[in-house]
Design a protein around this nucleic acid. Structure first.
Lengths: 347, 347
DNA sequence: ACTCACTGTGGATACGTTTTCATGCATCTC
DNA sequence: GAGATGCATGAAAACGTATCCACAGTGAGT
């Protein structure tokens, strides 16, 4: 089963291969030749081999996508966004799931490198160092939803981001990787203020791996009400999340409101509070990060901080596809507090 | 930024390129040469270019994955399964989202063809005909979770599937495409019998696009209780599902039990019944296809038919990677009825 | 000692494409 | 009419790899 090559088309059309290539790539050719070549190509059902082309032009053209876990609705949405943009550009997308494990992430980066995939969108799991090989190899990298940990001492890079209204920051310094983020700071602040307004004073934060910006925003928004004891972190797994939630609620019975920094954490919080006999929102007010479909089905329906998952992916894809051009250092997308029924006044 | 090629390694090691290729591909070479070549390769941080290799061997090696929608938890799990298996085989995975649209599916198939991706796992959306070009081009295709519609008159292909216990079916006829399925028939039958046992007589089915086997099983399991009026279908969208659910429940107030053939449909059913003031399970018993995380968080927790999403993907990947070998015509994975709180006795 | 088999090795080739370069032909300009 | 200009075209090179084939060297068997 030999595939039809450009040579076959050239032969059948009685022209040289160069002409065929030109016709198909939109180069110049006489109307007559163009027509004949196209007809023959269609008749032979010819498809140019991406392999040959890529080898010739030294780039795969595809784009790589690395997310922690496709099972998570947020990353599913993000992936859909990337795929949508990639499809409109006709680019294939190679997807890898890192499981939030820096080691797997590094392995996948190596795989993409090997495939000569030169454009990558990633929700980074490891530290910035892991991406050294990638950028050194000339990859165009865009981070989304998360930033790799840097050495401390950096000022908050958020301040320099391109805001939605299109304000351009100064040309990005060498090595800075464009990042598409949801406006965590604003989201968390809004939620915390909402809870404060309901009279809550003992507000806890339940976080997972990553998302340092959410935690920072939480501390900041809480101000003097902040209590490090009420900020706990779980690992990546579902069990770990449940254990953390349950432990937190048992240790600190005076907690009247909880902000869950992810839908996995929110799920754990709901289960744990049920298990402990805490009524939502009677005994405990709950705000969850990520507006997942079940938030509305939950009982009571959950008040959430929604991030535009699909947009995050789409914008990241746009960014990574705008290869040579001067690209903004980042994009910040708005979050939204969607009030449902999981928060009430302080009991 | 030139990448280091096999030629560089050969030069630096003082050997021919052929030798380097052999060493790296596990061919024969003297211990001394092998060691030197490996050392040099490591020192130069050499990575063989997949482009060159693929072009040479006329295959990309990667595997393609086509699902209707990554946002759906089931397909997210399925994708994770595929990725897990692919990673252990060191194969990249190109993912496409068809949106349940045969046209997009065909387009994506074309893209994979162009990329010389010669192994594809797909949840088919269109009819079998759409896959003609793919198999004609020599692609190894495995379907998962769904079968493309065939001309009527075929007997149920399920009967010939390889069951979990390893019974091998007769060698597959030419053109038959291996398929990995969840045992819908058994799942639906169990659920229907469970509902019957609770006294329900007017049992409705709410389906989406595809999954004809579930519907058939539903009719079969219901026997003389079956009523075509109570079998309704929605389109792919969320709105369509809600409209179908709401319409069904309004038109037929005597329905006391509902089987939702997918988690999107289940979601719609919950919302619609709430809207109509129907209490679950007081007025309406609900069984939903797919055990999604929120099924347990719903109020009441939903009784579901669970399919092993991740396994489906993993098995499909195994199948598609076992290229040359004689492959079974299909794999059937068990489903499980998980009883929670959304079903009660007939009111 | 001669052949034979075998092993390690490197040169050359092919994979399918894009792109550069040179060639031929027609048209335009002075 | 001669030179210049432009355009369509095809031959050939290059991308990085795997593999075929030939060649040299070695050891064993006769």
């Amino acid at each position: 089963m030999k595939r039809t090559t450009i040579k076959d088309v050239a032969e059948a059309a009685g022209v040289g291969v160069a002409t065929v290539s030109r016709v198909l790539s939109g180069g110049s050719a006489s109307a007559e030749t163009r027509e004949r070549v196209l007809a023959v190509a269609a008749h032979l059902d010819y498809r140019p081999s991406a392999l040959g082309r890529n080898l010739r032009q030294q780039r795969t053209g595809g784009i790589g996508l690395l997310v922690p876990d496709l099972t998570d609705t947020l990353y599913g949405r993000l992936a859909e966004g990337v795929l949508a943009c990639a499809r409109s550009a006709g680019e294939p997308v190679v997807v890898g799931s890192t499981g939030d494990d820096p080691e797997q992430e590094a392995e996948l980066i190596g795989m993409l490198l090997e495939q000569s995939v030169d454009r990558v969108i990633a929700v980074p799991s490891g530290d910035a160092e892991a991406w050294g090989p990638a950028i050194r190899a000339g990859m165009t990298v865009v981070f989304v939803g998360e930033q790799p940990e840097e050495e401390p001492g950096d000022d908050d890079p958020l301040d320099e981001l391109l805001l939605l209204d299109g304000v351009r920051t100064p040309p990005k310094p060498d090595g800075a990787i464009p990042t598409v983020l949801a406006d965590d700071r604003s989201g968390v602040r809004t939620a915390v203020q909402y809870l404060k307004g309901l009279g809550h004073r003992r507000i806890a934060y339940l976080g997972g791996p990553g998302h340092p910006r959410r935690v920072a925003a939480f501390r900041e928004a809480l101000g003097e009400l902040a209590d490090e004891e009420l900020i706990v972190f779980a690992g990546g797994g579902r069990d770990s999340a449940y254990a953390a939630a349950s432990g937190l609620l048992q240790r600190h019975r005076d907690v009247t409101a909880l902000l869950a920094g992810g839908n996995r954490l929110g799920e754990a919080a709901v289960l744990a509070s049920r298990e402990l006999g805490l009524r939502i929102p009677g005994d405990l007010s709950l705000v969850m990060y990520d507006d997942v479909p079940w938030a509305e089905l939950c009982s009571p329906p959950l008040t959430v901080i929604a991030q535009p998952g699909q947009d995050l992916g789409y914008r990241a894809a746009e960014l990574v596809l705008r290869a040579g051009a001067r690209r903004p250092r980042g994009v910040l997308l708005p979050t939204e507090l969607i009030v449902r029924g999981s928060c009430g006044p302080r009991p």
